[in-house]
């Protein structure tokens, strides 16, 4: 059985047909060609599929498509406006916070969720905000540095 779900993706309304329990991650990747959220584990453990759902960072592999009717979703792709990078994207590039790059969009979105709700976080808050994201290349200190850089701007 498929249901029709309509939601706002990166500022534009989209409508998809999908089985109700299909994960948001798979709908984004398979049906909408949004591939920045990555299936690192598909069990909510690695954070590589993090997106913003009504402003909060969530692992999209654990969200069912039937849960997102009329809600607002942002992915890493959506943060680029008129060719201009979001400050957090720019800062992660400059500070060396991305190595292989596979986990990067997830970190961008976790950081974005923090900075949206708390523009001047403490170091502890920064660490908490990305503690659900795994970076196996180990770029953690640089990611913290990048978030601090944006917070101080």
């Amino acid at each position: 059985m498929e249901i029709e779900v309509s939601f706002v993706l990166n500022g534009k309304r989209v409508t998809v047909k999908a089985p109700p329990a299909k994960s948001l991650l798979r709908v984004l990747r398979e049906d909408l060609d949004i591939t920045s959220p990555k299936p690192g584990c598909e069990a909510g453990e690695c954070g590589a599929c993090t997106v913003l759902l009504d402003g909060k960072a969530v692992t999209s592999c654990l969200v069912m498509i039937s849960q997102v009717q009329d809600r607002e979703i942002w992915t890493d792709e959506g943060l680029v406006k008129d060719g201009q990078l979001d400050p957090i994207q720019k800062a992660i590039a400059e500070e060396g916070g991305s190595q292989c790059g596979y986990c990067t969009p997830g970190f961008v979105m976790s950081a974005k969720a923090l900075l949206n709700s708390n523009p001047h976080p403490t170091e502890k808050e920064i660490v908490e905000s990305i503690s659900g994201n795994i970076c196996r290349c180990g770029a953690y200190p640089r990611l913290v540095q990048a978030i601090k850089k944006v917070a101080n701007e």
Binding site: S36, P37, K38, L85, Q89, A93, E94, G96, S98
Partner: peptide, 23 residues
């Protein structure tokens, strides 16, 4: 000199396509 990596912008914007992203 500390240039940022040449593929940094594609990586931070999620634009880069890994093979598992490809169709």
């Amino acid at each position: 000199r500390s240039y940022q990596r040449v593929d940094a912008l594609d990586k931070v914007t999620g634009k880069i396509k890994f093979f598992s992203d490809m169709k």
